[in-house]
């Protein structure tokens, strides 16, 4: 029982991170039908910016959090404007390669700015790990899970209750119809990019204290986050959250009861299974283009 609980804690910590990254993927896909392979790099930039702000510039955690999210969101807007909107033939194959190119570019840029070493920062609040029925839980893990759920709740509220959110939702359903009723669809695309990369930054910030951020941390996190989004249902907010937690917990249980060598394979096996048998994910949000 104690072991199971420990695996569970490990699972929800990683799961919450995957969930936040998955939300970023999903929200972008829902509004623009685009998958951003550079998403993991925005997570990395978020983490490293946070480290620089808090450790080098000694900005307190809360303002640093906001500055980072805002800054990375702006970077996302710039990326959309320069690299996505300018594309002359927006086909999936072209966009995949552009975003892959962007991810390599951003990684190279981060290597120049932050160097090749790993960095470190203290947890948001310094406390001893909590002891729950013999299993240990870091306070940072609680922060991670709380922030992940809060972020999802805020987004839910944004889509259901605010005019902008509803407009974005309308764009996601039918761009031309939205345009006809006077919704500026280009602006909405831009906004979706900002939201998505901002989500990436949130994921980066919350894991910065428990992992050691470095320029090459993004790709694996991005891929796993993507698997989580697929698992839960690409385009669905709560599906992504579910997929994230599910992936995290399954990985931890896989390590616990199968083999730690195959940990990374878990995510990709699940990805293939979902693609083959239920391409819409557990909560199908969008009509899947499959044959």
């Amino acid at each position: 029982m104690q072991e199971f609980l420990q695996y569970f804690f490990s699972g929800i910590t990683n799961g919450a991170i995957y969930a936040v990254i998955a939300i970023g993927f999903s929200m972008l896909y829902r509004s623009t039908d685009l998958i951003n392979f550079a998403h993991g790099e925005f997570v990395m930039i978020g983490a490293l910016t946070m480290v620089t702000l808090t450790m080098t510039l000694h900005v307190p955690v809360v303002p640093a959090f906001l500055i980072t999210v805002f800054g990375v969101a702006i970077l996302g807007l710039v990326f959309e404007r320069l690299a996505i909107r300018t594309v002359s033939r927006p086909e999936p194959i072209v966009l995949i390669i552009i975003t892959v190119g962007a991810s390599i570019f951003l990684r190279g840029l981060a290597m120049l700015i932050w160097g090749k070493d790993s960095h470190t920062m203290p947890p948001f609040t310094a406390h001893q790990p909590l002891d729950i029925a013999g299993a240990r839980l870091l306070t940072q893990s609680i922060w991670i899970v709380l922030i992940a759920i809060m972020v999802a709740a805020c987004l839910h509220f944004f889509y259901k209750r605010t005019l902008t959110g509803k407009a974005m939702h309308a764009c996601a359903i039918n761009k031309q119809a939205a345009w006809l009723v006077g919704i500026p669809s280009k602006l909405m695309t831009l906004l979706a990019f900002g939201l998505s990369t901002g989500m990436g930054a949130v994921a980066g910030i919350i894991i910065a204290p428990i992992t050691m951020p470095a320029y090459d941390m993004g790709s694996m996190l991005g891929l796993k986050g993507f698997c989580a989004a697929m698992l839960g249902g690409l385009g669905s907010l709560w599906g992504s959250v579910l997929g994230g937690f599910l992936l995290g917990i399954l990985e931890a249980l896989g390590v616990g009861f199968v083999s730690s060598g195959l940990k990374d394979a878990t995510a990709f096996l699940l990805l293939l299974l979902v693609l083959y048998f239920r391409p819409g994910g557990i909560i199908s949000a969008v009509k899947v283009k499959r044959f």
């Binding site: 552009i98 190119g101 390599i104 190279g108 290597m111």
Partner: peptide, 14 residues
Amino acid sequence: EMMVYGLVLMLVMI
């Protein structure tokens, strides 16, 4: 090198 590589990829595709 990494930056140049990524940039070339993006520019050609755009």
